[in-house]
């Protein structure tokens, strides 16, 4: 409960050390790679599932409630519990367990924001498309989805940032990317340099991916540039 004087400012345990980074660059890079790959895989799968779900909810109104409720329930389940549900079946040392938990967790943010984006498509644009003879699919790909892109990108950005943070939970089964660094550092006699390196890289990775997605979103929607304040 109280202060542990022994741990305070012990000279041999700085919060950051270049030496640690240089000596362990292989481990750090491997962790960063695993982290980035897990995030990318999770986001690709989640997008491939969530955007079609949002389209289904957009087309068939009665399904909107159930789809949002289901992804909401998945989102309410704590990440650790999701991992606990998946791991006994997929394997406790299999990175697939982490991947599945990450995908389930990212669904809600993408579905909700994509649906919000689709619902913001102006009715006039939809009517005009109909009048021009677009069918359901043509309208979806030429009108609805492009106009909903800002919402979809918002969802992807939120989901990516939270996924990067969540990957660390996988450290429990040794597949947490940078989370492994953090947890190993903690278990390894509170090695501060290792903990902080992992944590900082994690935040940096999240911010970099967020920035990249934001830029991609801007490039893909040149028409909205002036509209966005």
């Amino acid at each position: 409960m109280s202060f542990r004087l022994a741990l305070q400012e012990s000279p041999g345990n700085p919060w950051f050390s270049w030496r640690y980074v240089q000596d362990n660059s292989d481990t750090i890079l491997a962790a960063l790679r695993e982290h980035a790959i897990l995030t990318a895989e999770a986001m690709l799968i989640a997008t491939a599932v969530a955007v079609p779900l949002a389209v289904v909810a957009y087309w068939y109104r009665p399904l909107t409630g159930p789809i949002l409720a289901l992804s909401g329930v998945l989102y309410t389940i704590p990440s650790l519990a999701l991992l606990a549900f998946v791991a006994p079946y997929v394997g406790t040392t299999n990175p697939g367990s982490v991947l599945i938990a990450l995908v389930l967790y990212a669904l809600l943010l993408i579905v909700r924001n994509s649906l919000a984006g689709l619902n913001q498509v102006p009715p006039e644009a939809r009517d005009a498309a109909q009048g021009m003879g677009y069918g359901r699919w043509g309208r979806l790909f030429r009108i609805d989805l492009p106009l909903a892109l800002p919402g979809i990108v918002t969802g992807l950005r939120l989901a990516t940032v939270s996924t990067v943070a969540l990957v660390t939970v996988g450290a429990l089964i040794g597949h947490g990317g940078l989370g492994d660094l953090i947890l190993t550092g903690f278990r390894n006699n509170f090695y501060k340099a290792e903990i902080l390196t992992g944590a900082v890289l994690c935040v940096v990775l999240a911010l970099v991916l967020d920035l990249l997605l934001a830029m991609a979103g801007r490039l893909l929607t040149p028409w909205s540039r002036r509209a966005v304040r």
């Binding site: 939120l158 940078l178 947890l183 903990i195 992992g198």
Partner: peptide
Amino acid sequence: LAIPTIALLTILP
């Protein structure tokens, strides 16, 4: 949103 929970949990102690 970007800060991993585990980072804070391990750093703060």
